[in-house]
Design a protein around this nucleic acid. Structure first.
Length: 138
DNA sequence: TTTCTCACA
DNA sequence: TGTGAGCA
């Protein structure tokens, strides 16, 4: 669990993130405007990204390449409180939590689509690049 | 030099 | 989204 801490601690400049994600600074800032990511700031108002942010950016990139728009990406990335909209739960003949179930399945479906083809390949590639970047650091 | 915000193509 | 201006 303390892994979360480190993931959110490592900080990169937007320039590093650009190289790591192949996104332009413009895109990165654009995604931030749409709340797809929420990087921290330095004293000089400089953006600081964590490993989590980088991974998030890579997911966003993958989704965009699949033709998903900002709104769609928000749905996949934003954990929209698990129980903040149970007001519209349908109570049909089969069950009581119809809507909730559908949301969960949809979310899982989208996530799977996003990661289809590189369950491990892309991730390890990313980590490899991160390591190379951190070690070379020249 | 790099990043930032803002505005226009 | 890209690009350029003017700052810090």
């Amino acid at each position: 669990m303390s892994d979360e801490i480190r993931r959110n601690m490592a900080l990169f400049s937007i320039g590093s993130v650009m190289k790591l994600t192949d996104l332009t600074a413009r895109q990165i800032r654009y995604y931030e405007q749409h709340e797809l990511i929420v990087p921290a700031r330095t004293d000089g108002n400089q953006r600081l990204f964590s490993f989590n942010d980088v991974e998030r950016l890579l997911q966003i990139k993958a989704l965009i390449e699949k033709g998903v728009n900002i709104a769609g990406i928000k749905q996949v990335l934003n954990p929209v409180s698990k129980d903040s909209e149970d007001a519209t739960v349908i109570t049909d003949q089969s069950g009581v939590k119809r809507k909730e179930l559908d949301d969960a399945q949809l979310h899982k479906m989208l996530k799977r689509e996003l990661l289809t083809g590189n369950r491990r390949g892309k991730v390890s590639l990313i980590q490899g690049e991160l390591s190379r970047f951190l070690n070379h650091k020249s």
